[in-house]
Design a protein around this nucleic acid. Structure first.
Lengths: 107, 107
DNA sequence: TCCACCTATTCGCATATCCGAATACATCCG
DNA sequence: CGGATGTATTCGGATATGCGAATAGGTGGA
């Protein structure tokens, strides 16, 4: 019930919040939740340039939110923990309710 | 199981993810979860300048994540939905497990 | 080994975000 | 009204973040 320490919140911010702080990374996470994919497959699916996908994957990999497995010349990425999607889905539910509350409250 | 549309993820990012994308805002959210507080009380508790607190509260209020009630000259803020703390706590749990996994896997 | 394929990195730039300081705005009360 | 208290906003500059384009790096087969 008390407020978590500044250090823990700093870590939380750097490791998780900042990682989901970009739309394209969120897209990548959902795409990897559907199934593991290699970089080019992600780039094609999400219509992003390959270097863009690679950079975002680096961000996620550095935070150990995704895991890279090299398979021949390709590198297949997968989610490290599916609960990250739970977090995002909970946020989506919260968003829906918040928007609804805002729509019915104001007018 | 499929990937949410780009529009919804864009909204998710703008309304929720970006809002928790700053350590001080996370601190404020936890402080407000403990109990509603007015701006100056938050500033003193979290050791931030009053304008800083006010700016962050504006960000949260614009996204309808906190609610402002004027009480005389003061403005008392409270969480609009306690599930936002659930989201943050789920992230903290995820963070703990991720750090642990990283610690036992590498060395 | 050389080449083809796939992935990662670098560089320069544009944009966004945050902060401190100062100031403007709002409310209440004498 | 005028001052005291409490809150919001503006301004300028520093920092961070993301992107496109080009390039470097790694892997496996001919």
């Amino acid at each position: 019930m008390s407020i978590p320490g500044t250090d823990e919140l700093q870590l939380l911010h750097e490791q998780i919040c900042q990682a989901v702080g970009d739309v394209k990374r969120i897209q990548i996470l959902y795409a990897l939740h559907e199934q593991p994919r290699h970089v080019s497959a992600l780039a094609e699916l999400l219509e992003m340039p390959q270097p863009t996908v690679s950079r975002h994957l680096t961000v996620l990999r550095e935070r150990a939110l995704v895991i890279a497995d090299r398979q021949g010349p390709a590198v297949v990425y997968r989610l490290a923990d599916p609960r990250l999607i739970d977090v995002l889905n909970l946020m989506r539910q919260l968003l829906r309710d918040t928007l609804e509350r805002r729509a019915t409250a104001l007018p």
